[in-house]
């Protein structure tokens, strides 16, 4: 590894990170702006955070988003974990390649297409667009992310653990629940967090699949911005960034820690 901080390296890092984070930094800074005008600094204030908390429409949207994220992340984790188990365990069945391709296709599918196809489906099914349809849509697109995370953990899972549990008297289902699930839990939790944050900040798919009374926070923000950006929006966004960042950090710490533990255990096993 190259440890030297050459001039070129420093410039690359600074430019890269500036490019990534200056807009977000500006947004956060201006959320503490006293002035109503977004681009003119008039002193530090938390006024807009108070204003935000008095904005009932915004709070309602936040509540909708939270409910959607909780339900869809949980459902996606359930389905995604099951898909991962099948993909890892059943290595040979008719159409496995097609199945794995179809599980992972939504990862690269343009959101507009996912949203539009779901909308068409809901219309065809004569399903009223409510908060429920948004939950369904979010489950659909985030379960493949869960499947990827859980699958990568399951690949290194020692299958004989589950066989040992069966040998000692567990049915296959009970063996999975008492042995496999606790061991792969960090990956499942990380998958849940990922699904949660994906749902939290989705605008496109929610716009297609939600109806009246089911406006999510990103939709609310988007529609308010079209009428003009207020520092209040900056405040909401700052809160969202804080939430998402925390979730992502927790998820990666959990994953990283269990990985380190696993590696240490494996090293010990080899040394022992």
């Amino acid at each position: 590894m190259n440890r030297h901080w050459s001039g070129f390296n420093i410039v690359s890092v600074v430019v890269g990170f500036a490019f990534l984070y200056i807009p977000i930094l500006l947004l956060i800074i201006y959320s503490f702006n006293e002035s109503r005008l977004v681009t003119v600094w008039a002193g530090f204030s938390t006024r807009w955070y108070g204003e935000m908390l008095r904005n009932q429409a915004l709070l309602d949207a936040a509540w909708v988003t939270l409910r959607v994220a909780l339900v869809s992340a949980t459902a996606a984790t359930l389905l995604g974990t099951l898909a991962a188990v099948v993909l890892v365990r059943v290595t040979r069945f008719r159409g496995r390649l097609l199945f794995s391709g179809m599980v992972f296709a939504p990862l690269v599918m343009p959101e507009v297409i996912t949203g539009l196809s779901l909308l068409l489906l809901f219309i065809a099914m004569n399903l009223d667009r409510t908060i429920f349809t948004v939950m369904l849509a979010h489950t659909t697109f985030s379960m493949c992310f869960v499947a990827v995370v859980v699958q990568s953990r399951l690949v290194t899972f020692d299958r004989s653990l589950e066989e040992a549990a069966q040998d000692l008297g567990c049915t296959p289902l009970k063996a999975f629940l008492t042995v496999t699930l606790p061991v792969i839990a960090p990956a499942v939790i990380a998958g849940w967090m990922l699904a949660f944050t994906l749902s939290l900040d989705d605008l496109v798919i929610a716009s297609f699949t939600s109806g009246s009374g089911a406006t999510t926070l990103p939709m609310r923000i988007y529609s308010q911005v079209r009428l003009g950006v207020t520092p209040e929006i900056n405040a909401v966004c700052t809160v969202l960034i804080a939430l998402v960042t925390t979730a992502v950090i927790i998820a990666s710490v959990i994953n990283k820690r269990s990985m380190v533990q696993r590696e240490r255990a494996e090293q010990l096993a080899r040394a022992g």
């Binding site: 004989s160 653990l161 066989e163 040992a164 606790p182 061991v183």
Partner: peptide, 20 residues
């Protein structure tokens, strides 16, 4: 007869101890 109903037990090559 499934493994969980057989009156025999197995010791696995990797030992398969439950890590948790």
């Amino acid at each position: 007869v499934p493994p969980y109903r057989r009156p025999l037990n197995m010791m696995f090559q990797s030992y398969a101890l439950f890590p948790h």
